[in-house]
């Protein structure tokens, strides 16, 4: 067979080695001792591998960068993530302002507008859609084969999934803060300035929770087409059966069982956590439930992750 690759002058390696081991080796390529593994058949040198915690850091950086690049390339996704809650805030809230009276409930110390009430819920709505979008992207990656690239990493798969989760969460935060800026401009939603900072960990935890739920769902979605089911059976019920749009006492007035359903919904507690943190308050019960369910869904997602399905492009016959 005739070669046409690497045969032009300058590309043929000199000194008998095309291998960059020698062609480009420099002091930075020398492996450190901790990257050596001794076996029966001699010493394995894991050249170039940055052993220890830094490898985990580089891995996280790479996954975050990829998610970010994909996010900036999908401008329509960013716009729709802003337009959706803005429509709720401007159109829906204007209509319901007159119909719904909001009593003074924590964390508020005075009567508030309906827009002020639903803004934290809409922040969580952005995170909810992004979390579910992550499940879509996992299924897409699986079907397109790029999941295999992720699984070729020598690092533990649980770490890879955790990185993916954190990367999705961090990118979601950008959208939430963009929305909060617009909400301040459009409807004069103005929590205390410190609230924007104290809300950050709460928003990140909520992003992790919803990302973990998305990741968990992606292990059970066999085909991309099934995502419509996620919309109907996960996103809408989670959002509507929560305290995002109406206070819990209002729900209780309407229906006792609906109230209990809201309480059983982890999204309710995430919304309350964010709502309180925006006003510099800690809702310990909401934090405990949100952190607990995040841990539970992250574990379920990691344990339920099936590399064989990734290998088969989503089609596991076993």
């Amino acid at each position: 067979m005739n070669s046409t690759i690497g045969t032009t002058p300058g590309t043929v390696p000199v000194s008998g080695s095309a291998r960059p081991h020698s062609a480009t080796d420099s002091s930075q390529d020398k492996p450190n001792d901790s990257s050596l593994i001794h076996t029966d058949s001699g010493t394995i040198i894991t050249a170039g591998f940055c052993a220890g915690l830094s490898a985990y850091g580089h891995c996280f950086g790479g996954i975050l960068m990829r998610e970010y690049l994909r996010f900036v390339q999908q401008r329509s996704r960013f716009l729709s993530s802003l337009v959706r809650p803005l429509l709720w805030l401007v159109v829906f809230a204007s209509g319901f302002r007159a119909a719904l009276g909001v009593a003074i409930i924590p964390p508020y110390e005075t009567y508030i507008t309906y827009e002020t009430y639903i803004a934290p819920g809409l922040c969580c709505m952005i995170l909810l859609f992004n979390g579910m979008q992550s499940s879509l992207s996992m299924v897409y990656d699986r079907e397109m084969g790029s999941m295999r690239v992720l699984l070729m990493s020598p690092l533990p798969r649980s770490w890879l999934l955790l990185c993916k989760l954190m990367a999705i969460g961090l990118i979601s935060l950008t959208q939430v803060y963009a929305f909060l800026a617009l909400a301040w401009l459009v409807v004069d939603f103005d929590p205390p300035l410190m609230g924007y900072i104290t809300a950050l960990p709460a928003l990140f935890l909520t992003a992790l929770l919803l990302g973990a739920i998305g990741l968990f769902l992606s292990t059970h979605i066999r085909q991309l087409e099934n995502f419509a089911g996620v919309m109907n059976f996960v996103i809408f019920p989670m959002f509507f059966i929560s305290s995002a749009l109406y206070p819990l006492w209002k729900m209780r007035e309407a229906s006792e069982w609906l109230y209990w359903l809201c309480l059983a919904n982890p999204f309710t507690h995430a919304v309350e956590l964010v709502r309180h943190s925006l006003y510099g308050q800690l809702n310990l019960a909401a934090l405990t439930i949100t952190a607990g369910t995040t841990l539970m869904f992250a574990l379920l997602a990691i344990l339920g992750f099936n590399p064989e399905r990734a290998a088969a492009g989503g089609k596991v016959t076993r």
Binding site: D29, C50, S54, C59, M152
Partner: peptide
């Protein structure tokens, strides 16, 4: 992306 998944430092990946 692949280099990062392998745990390689960014500068090393660029060279490689």
């Amino acid at each position: 992306y692949h280099g990062a998944l392998q745990g390689l430092p960014r500068q090393h990946v660029q060279t490689r």
